[in-house]
Design a protein around this nucleic acid. Structure first.
Lengths: 188, 188
DNA sequence: AAGCGCATGTAAAAGGTTACATGATTAC
DNA sequence: GTAATCATGTAACCTTTTACATGCGCTT
């Protein structure tokens, strides 16, 4: 494929469902999100937008806004919404150039209730595996030796535990909450 | 530089201070560590080892071990220990191809007590910034709108909080614990 | 008119994965 | 003898960063 990875273009396309944005807007948004999704450079953002445009999934409009240099505002098209929905419908089996879990979480407005639950559950399973792996390594490690490695394992387990707790609480909340109209809608 | 990023070669070199390993060993070790540091492929591990060898920072020994196919065991040299120490001595200002914090944590055996504290403190400051950024975004977000984004922010804050708590507890422990001989030694 | 912040763009280089090729050893 | 696991290696490809180049509009 031409420019940027598929999942990255998909994510940008998804962001444009929130509101029309320029490349600069996207950069700032991702920057403030920090390492939750990473902070891609302009060198990957602009080409990705060009590809989305070529595919007809977005439209551009140059907008000179209040004494500011002209900006290119990108808006998602119906075709764009359609392919996005198609992408979001099948769960991400592929690997994650940017943190796939958070990307999908940010776009979870466009997921069904069941889709969101499935996504959280899948993550829960993965993190539980990860935690178990670290715990096994920790047991196999000699007492006293390689204190740095032990420190890293404890760090990993602490973070994984917190993530599992959060996922549990969200899944709990989702199981109690009545299914709202919002999350049932698929395409806007 | 020739093969692999500098920080990746540095990390591999550091792992060899624990014990001599083959490329295969390194792969399995990183695999069980999961996404704590990422799981680089053989295509990046072997070339990195070759570069370390060319620089004279490691030596190889082919070892046919108990009915198994021959393996190339890499051992760190004195020159290797020297450059590793040099790398570890100045704090990582540069960006992180693999998770720099965890990499350094795993190698923290070779850090001084003060060096480890500094490393944890630096991470603490970064995570605190990150958390503050997410909190600010959360406040700026309209109620009810963009529920996915809010979910992602809460996720990020939950994980960041847990990390801060862990870092606090470790820094607390390190401030109480008498400085041991182990962590004062720099080169073995 | 020089400088700065905003904004877009692109080519080259770096970094890493995928896919393939090779070969030894054990088990069937 | 052939399949499976262990083990090493490499080249082509993909993605992303780095480092530039460009230009508008405001301020001094």
């Amino acid at each position: 494929m031409a420019n940027g990875s598929k999942s990255f273009r998909q994510f940008i396309l998804g962001l444009l469902t929130h509101r029309p944005m320029s490349g600069y807007d996207i950069k700032r948004f991702l920057q403030s999100l920090g390492w939750l999704v990473g902070s891609p450079s302009f060198g990957s953002i602009y080409p990705a937008l060009h590809t989305l445009l070529e595919n007809g999934w977005v439209t551009v409009e140059v907008s000179s806004f209040e004494n500011k240099p002209p900006r290119k505002i990108y808006t998602i098209t119906e075709a764009g919404k359609s392919v996005l929905q198609e992408w979001l419908s099948h769960p991400s089996t592929d690997n994650a150039p940017l943190k796939a879990f958070v990307m999908r979480l940010i776009l979870s407005d466009r997921l069904t209730h069941a889709g969101l639950v499935a996504h959280l559950r899948q993550r829960h399973a993965q993190v539980a595996d990860h935690h178990a792996s670290l715990e096994r390594m920790s047991r196999e490690l000699d007492e006293g030796r390689e204190s740095g490695q032990r420190l890293a394992l404890e760090y990993g387990m602490a973070v994984a535990s917190a993530e599992l707790a959060w996922l549990d609480s969200q899944l709990e909340r989702l199981s109690q909450e009545p299914v709202s109209e919002d999350v049932l809608e698929s395409v806007g």
